[in-house]
Amino acid sequence: MSKQYKAAALISGGLDSLLAAKVMLEQGIHVEGINFYTGFCVEGHTAAIRKKHQDKAKRNNALWSAEQLGIKLHIVDIVEEYKDVLINPKHGYGANMNPCLDCKIFMVKKAKQWIEENDFDFIITGEVMGQRPMSQRKEVMPVVVNESGAGDILLRPLCAKNLPKTRPEIEGWVDRDKLLAFHGRNRKPQMALAKEFGFEDYAAPAGGCCFLTDENYSTKLVDLWQARSSRDYEMDDIMLLKIGRHLRPKPYFKLIVGREEGENKFMQGYTKTYTNIKTVSHAGPLCLIDGPADKDDLLFAAQMVARYSQGKNEDNVILSINQPNAEPYEVSVKPLAASEIKQEWHV
C-alpha cells in the first residue's frame, strides 16, 4: 500500500483555507488544521460582548471549517510571539496596522516547526495569487516561501498551477493537474468551488478575520503606543481596545466607557486591576481608567462619565471612584455638557 502523505493546513476560518484543505482531502491526503491565535482575531464571541449582538449565532469559524472538513484542528496560542511581528514588521504595514506579509511568513514558519514535530510532510495554505494587495501579490509569494524557511514544502492548492512546482507535486504526492490556477480578486471561482463541494454558510469571503485591518482599532492601538511612549501591549490592552468608547482628555490617561450592558459586564472583570468609576445615584456606564490619572483627573473623568449616565441633565450625579489597593470614595459632580466633551478626545 502506498504511503498516505500528511499535510498541515493553515485554517483561518475563511473560505479559501477551507477550499484548499478540501482540495487536498479529495486527493487522499491526510490533512489536519492549524489555526493561530494572535489575540487580534475577530471572533463572533468578542462581538457577543455587546449585548445587541447576542442573538447572532456564535461560532468559531476555524472550528466550523474543521468540522465541515472532518479534520482535526490544533489551535495554537501565539499571542506572545506575535508581538514582535506586529511591533517590528520587516515588510511594514498594510492599509492599517496589519503586518500581513510578516504575519504570513511567521505563521508558515510556525507551521513548519509544527510539521517537523508531528511528522507531517508538507504545509498548505489558502493563498490565492493577486488576491490581497500586501501579502498575496505575485512578487511576494516566493518571499513567504523563502523567509519562512518552508521552501518547496509549501503548497498553495488554489493557485498552485500559477506557481513553480513544489515537492509534493514533483514527487507525485499530489496530482498537479487536479490543483487550481485561481488568481486575482475575483471571488467567483471560489464560490463556485464551494458550491461544488456543498459548502454553505461559510464565513464572509474575503478579509474581516483580524482587528488589525480595522481602521478604528488600528487608531486606538497607535494611540495606546503614543500615550505610553512604547510600542508594546498586554493581552488586557488589546482586548479592551475592542470594546467601549475610548476618550483621552489628557495625553497620559484615557477613559474606556461601556456603551451597553454587555460591555459593562465584560469590563467588570477588569475592575480589580484598573481604576474605575461607577455611577451611584443614577444608572450609568462602567468606566475604566487607563493611565496614571491623579485625584483631579479622576474628578474630571467622573464628570465625563456622568455625562453618559441617566443623570446627564441633573445638577449633581454621585459616582464612586475605585482604585486597586485603595479605599473607594464617592464624589458628587455636575455632568459635563455634551459640548464640553471635545471631539479630539474621542480615540
Binding site: 491565535y37 463572533g44 464571541h45 456564535k58 468559531n60 476555524a62 489551535i75
Partner: peptide, 30 residues
C-alpha cells in the same frame, strides 16, 4: 474570551490519558 478557553482545554486534554475527565469553568458563552 474565546478561543482562549478552547486553547487551554485543548492543551490540558493533550496532557491527559484516555478515560480521564476534565471539568472546565468558563464565563464566555462562546
Amino acid at each position: 474570551l474565546c478561543p482562549m478557553p478552547v486553547i487551554r482545554t485543548q492543551n490540558k486534554v493533550n496532557e491527559l490519558q484516555a478515560g480521564d475527565t476534565l471539568v472546565v469553568s468558563c464565563t464566555d458563552p462562546g
